[in-house]
């Protein structure tokens, strides 16, 4: 903790009165430790102010940092592709705090004396929503392409079904070929008697039939 304590934070936030501000600045001139802490606080404030800016328009450079994107991608299973011109910066940085600040900044929002609190609750929520939407809008993002997988499954099932259908059809066609059926000799003499008996005629054989066909035993 610095010599000034809370007053150092108030000095960086511009919340000190005129006289107290002069006394704090006079102390910073002689105290290197407080001076370094003040610099750190200013740097932190400036980065926080950058996060508290309104949601970025498409193509803006205030997109999620690399470590955030890396964490998103770890949640899913996807193949990383080359980012487009509006895509996120390459997720090369390891996670662990806000270490990378966007190289370009729109609107030149510099650390100033404006008294506004960085990242209060609603702003943080809006920012997270914007980040998530931007992250998902980029191609490809960390979430798996479920619709594509479903389509590939359907194609696989259709292919298997078609193969089965064709296979069964081909097997049926070849199995249905006429096999060698044994030659039979219809027993015409017996058939003649059967016909007569069931149709109400005299049970006799057909004489001319017997002359034309070798008599065969009954079936």
């Amino acid at each position: 903790m610095s010599c000034l304590g809370e007053r150092l934070t108030a000095l960086v936030d511009g919340e000190l009165g005129h006289d107290e501000r002069d006394r704090a600045l006079a102390h910073l001139a002689v105290c290197a430790r407080c001076r370094a802490e003040a610099e750190a606080l200013r740097g932190l404030k400036s980065r926080l102010r950058g996060l508290a800016d309104p949601p970025a328009r498409e193509g803006a450079d205030d997109l999620p940092t690399g470590d955030f994107v890396a964490r998103l991608k770890e949640l899913g299973r996807q193949t990383p592709t080359a980012p487009g011109p509006d895509d996120l910066p390459p997720p090369a940085r390891p996670s662990g705090g806000m270490t990378h600040a966007p190289a370009r900044r729109r609107g030149g929002d510099r650390v100033s004396g404006r008294s506004h609190r960085p990242l209060d609750g609603p702003a943080r929520t809006r920012r997270h929503a914007a980040v998530t939407a931007a992250a998902f809008a980029a191609e490809p993002v960390g979430w798996p392409d479920r619709s594509g997988q479903a389509r590939s499954h359907r194609r696989r099932y259709l292919a298997v079904g078609a193969v089965l259908f064709l296979g069964i059809g081909t097997a049926s066609y070849f199995a249905g070929g006429e096999q060698d059926a044994p030659a039979v000799n219809p027993a015409f003499d017996r058939f003649a008697v059967e016909h007569a008996l069931t149709s109400g005629d005299v049970p006799i054989t057909d004489p001319l039939l017997q002359q034309a066909v070798q008599t065969s035993p009954g079936p």
């Binding site: 044994p182 030659a183 039979v184 058939f191 149709s199 002359q211 034309a212 066909v213 070798q214 079936p219």
Partner: peptide, 20 residues
């Protein structure tokens, strides 16, 4: 009128049907 139809499995020995 009556018609009888006899159906049996096999193939026909056509050589025995001379005169038909």
């Amino acid at each position: 009128e009556s018609v009888s139809v006899f159906v049996q499995r096999g193939s026909l020995d056509e050589e025995r049907l001379t005169g038909w």
